[in-house]
Each structure stands twice: as C-alpha cells, then as structure tokens.
C-alpha cells in the first residue's frame, strides 16, 4: 500500500503538462456533477425554453418589432444572451461553495498546478454554455427562428455569445472569491432579471422612457444581442444611435473590458488567499 511520492515539475514543459492534466481533472469533476445531478441540468436547460415560450407566445402578441418582422425572430438572440447571462449563477455557486467548504484550501495544500482550479472551472462552464446554446438553438428553430446570413456570420454570432459568457465567468469567479457564500447566489438569481429586462433582449429600448432606453442600450448584454441579431440577419438591429451603429465593436469591447477588469482581480484575490 505504499505510494511513490511524485517529484515536483522541474521543466517548463513538465509544469505545463501538470497544468493541463490538473485542469482536466477539475473539468472532469464538474462533468461528473452533471452526471450525478441530471435533474438540475435538465431544469437548467429547460428554464430558458420556458422563458422563450412565455415571451414568444404569451407576451409576444403585444410586442412590436422595430422595423416590423416576426417577434420570435427578434426574441431568440435575446434569449441566447439570457442563457449566457444565467450561466454566471453556476460559476459563482461552484467557486463560493469550494471556498466556503475548505475544498479550495485542500487544493491549495496539494502539489497541483495553481491554475487548474480556474482552468478546469472555465472549461466546464464553457462546455455548459455551449450545451445551453445548442438546446436554445434547437428551441429557436422549433419556434420559427432562422439565421439568414452566412454560416460564418452565424458562427461569429455564437462566438460573441461565448465571449460574453467567458467575461461573465470571470465576474462570477471574482464574486465567488469575494463573497465566499454560496447562499448569496439567491441575490444573483434576482439581479440577473433587471439586467435582462434593462436591455434590448426582450423589447426595443426605443419603446422605453428616454433615460431607461439609454441605460438599456448601454447594457453590455444589449451590445451582444444587437451584434448577434445583425450577424444572424434577425430583425431589430436598425437604429441610428452611436451604440447601435457600433454594435459589433461594442459586443467585442464590453467582454474584453470585463475580462480586463475581473481576470486580474480574480487572480489577485486567489493569490491573496494566503494572507
């Protein structure tokens, strides 16, 4: 029953190999979570579909699409972005739970790559985001949504959605390390709604009172939604405001800015767990 003590990595290559292997071990852990909690996974995937049905069919009749067009075609890019936005709850819960339960400390007391926790987390969450988007695309196709541009443009649209998810991932990691309380996810589950409503995901900001419309247009979520509508050839991206004219740039700029802020903050916070 003796176990040989592995030697710590000496070369950069060896270090990199540890980082990759350890990152994958953590990713696998999350994949096992899915397998062990299929009900939660299915509920998580079905919830956005419910919102689609609710807005597409219950409220949709009363919605006017800027420049005319099918409301569900207008709605779906907003729903894609909503799915991406909801993902932050999972990231936050996972990080806060590990910190509060001492699992993070156990990892830190082990001879594993320091980056693995974050690399594993991001990989698992991004896989989750892709799965969520695939389900939503299927749902969209069923309710009559289509993309009208090239495949390349459509892929670029999904790329922007995943970029936003990646940015929100770092916000989630940072908040998890900062608050360390998995129960606080309840606040996040509430707060995502005003972020969603105060955007162009469900209705055009032009229909809102002036200042609210401006807030909604400035919302990072709106930038991604506008840009993906444009790339998918869905209605709703016309408009003459500066933000609307530069939706693509904003859909790149906002996530990059968020990553630029929260990635270094998260790394700093993680490193400072030893103070």
């Amino acid at each position: 029953m003796t176990v040989a003590i592995p030697s710590p990595p000496r070369t950069a290559l060896h270090r990199l190999r540890w980082a990759v292997v350890d990152g994958w071990t953590i990713t696998r852990r999350d994949l096992i979570h899915w397998a062990r909690q299929p009900v939660q996974v299915v509920v998580g995937l079905l919830f956005p579909i419910m919102v689609v049905l609710m807005f597409g069919y219950l409220f949709g009749g009363g919605m006017s699409v800027p420049g005319g067009g099918n409301y569900r075609e207008f709605l779906m890019p907003g729903m894609f972005a909503m799915t991406v936005l909801f993902g932050i709850e999972g990231t936050y819960t996972a990080i806060a739970t590990d910190v509060s339960r001492g699992v993070t400390d156990r990892f830190r007391s082990m001879p594993m790559a320091g980056s693995a926790v974050v690399v594993g987390r991001s990989t698992a969450d991004m896989l989750n985001a892709v799965l969520g988007l695939v389900v939503m695309v299927a749902c969209g196709l069923l309710v009559g949504w289509r993309w009208h541009g090239t495949v390349g443009a459509a892929l670029a649209g999904f790329g922007l959605l995943l970029l936003l998810r990646f940015a929100l991932l770092w916000l989630g990691i940072y908040l998890g390390l900062l608050l360390r309380n998995p129960e606080a996810v309840v606040a996040m589950q509430i707060l995502v709604w005003p972020v969603l409503f105060l955007s162009n995901a469900l209705v055009s900001p032009e229909t809102m009172p002036g200042w609210l419309g401006m807030v909604a247009e400035g919302n990072p979520l709106s930038a991604t939604v506008s840009a993906t509508r444009e790339l998918f050839g869905n209605p709703g991206w016309e408009g003459d405001s500066w933000l609307r004219q530069h939706a693509l740039a904003m859909a790149l700029g906002w996530p990059v800015l968020l990553i630029g802020i929260f990635l270094p903050l998260s790394v700093r916070r993680y490193r400072r767990l030893d103070r």
């Binding site: 176990v3 592995p6 062990r36 699992v103 400390d105 156990r106 693995a116």
Partner: peptide, 29 residues
C-alpha cells in the same frame, strides 16, 4: 503532508470514491 481542516473539505456531490480518485489524480498518481 496531509492537511485535514475544520470543515470536511470534500465535494458533496461526488461519491466518496470519486472524491478520493479525483484527489489522487491531483497528486499526479
């Protein structure tokens, strides 16, 4: 070293066996 803290620092969702196997991999076994 082995460090056992005040909280049971194990994954609640994984099984006991899966926890130990995961930590074993993270020790590079």
């Amino acid at each position: 070293i082995g460090l056992v803290g005040q909280h049971a620092a194990v994954d609640e969702i994984l099984s006991g066996r899966q926890n130990l196997a995961m930590f074993g991999r993270l020790y590079h076994l």
